[in-house]
Design a protein around this nucleic acid. Structure first.
Ligand SMILES: [Mn+2]
Ligand SMILES: [Mn+2]
Ligand SMILES: [Zn+2]
Ligand SMILES: [Zn+2]
Lengths: 146, 146
DNA sequence: TATTTTATGCAAATATGTTGCATCTATAGA
DNA sequence: TCTATAGATGCAACATATTTGCATAAAATA
């Protein structure tokens, strides 16, 4: 994605355009998988850890990214769809966590099936699948640590 | 649940019966919602933090409890069904996180819908719903911090 | 450009989770 | 019931994740 688009996404979400935010958002959009704080720290050593955390929090609050439920104990984030903004979050797509390569992918093509629970109000649904991803099934020997 | 049942559950899962394990298991079974390590630490100040963590790990390994994915980044655990034991884990039920009271419940009556992803191997599915729980819908003013 | 608002970096604090080791205890066997 | 032993506990220390306070720097606005 080109730099102009990155900047307009930041502006559309009421975020000041800074080097750190441009670089991180760029990386989110181009990476194709959900990111951990660890991966961001390793990728962006030029920025302070605290700044990266604050970037993730700002992005989450403004609807640029969303956190993905995981039982590993580490937070993971994925880029939101165009439809998300401050106040409006819709993440009805499935997530897949590969146990071989450790990557979490958003699967935009799969909608989370609706469930009806009498008495409950459901505002958000998250379906997280785990197993082996397409890439690891094709190249079974390329497994990598998380 | 009575003390005899608690003890027999521990024994059935190859766990030595200790005060800590009896108290924690009792609390899991009677509480009706998923527990965070934080809540356990606050509830069981008489036991060392490390012992509580090791209790959770032992329970999870032996199939007494299961961890529940959450986007908060903190581990949460729920009591397993009768059908779980060492080696056999089946958690195809839905989980619900209430945004009012912060509680996570297991919904044993709802199965996680199957999804087919060509190219992927799926070994586990987790569906986490969020919104307002039955209790909070009934008594809207009783909201509590997480 | 001047003003205002917000982001950043650094230090420090807090929180979460694990490991090593000495001691204690639940359990099985004599 | 007594004893031997594998396993559980508590404590200290460690490792890592995440947040907060504050001074400074930079972005937006006029
Ligand atoms: Mn996603
Ligand atoms: Mn459950
Ligand atoms: Zn993979
Ligand atoms: Zn509730």
């Amino acid at each position: 994605m080109d730099e102009g688009n990155i900047i307009s996404i930041l502006k559309k979400h009421e975020l000041r355009v800074t080097d750190c935010r441009r670089d991180v958002l760029h990386y989110f959009i181009d990476s194709g998988h959900a990111l951990s704080t660890r991966e961001l720290e390793e990728t962006f050593g030029q920025y302070d850890r605290v700044t990266l955390y604050r970037t993730l929090n700002a992005f989450t609050e403004k609807g640029v990214i969303h956190s993905i439920p995981d039982s590993s104990g580490f937070a993971r984030y994925g880029a939101c769809h165009d439809t998300c903004g401050p106040g409006t979050h819709r993440h009805d797509h499935v997530h897949f966590k590969c146990e071989e390569c450790g990557k979490i992918e958003c699967i935009p093509s799969e909608q989370v099936p609706m469930v009806n629970l009498p008495g409950y109000t459901i505002s958000e649904s998250n379906l997280i699948l785990a197993g082996t991803c397409e890439a690891c099934n094709t190249l079974p020997q390329q497994s990598v640590s998380q």
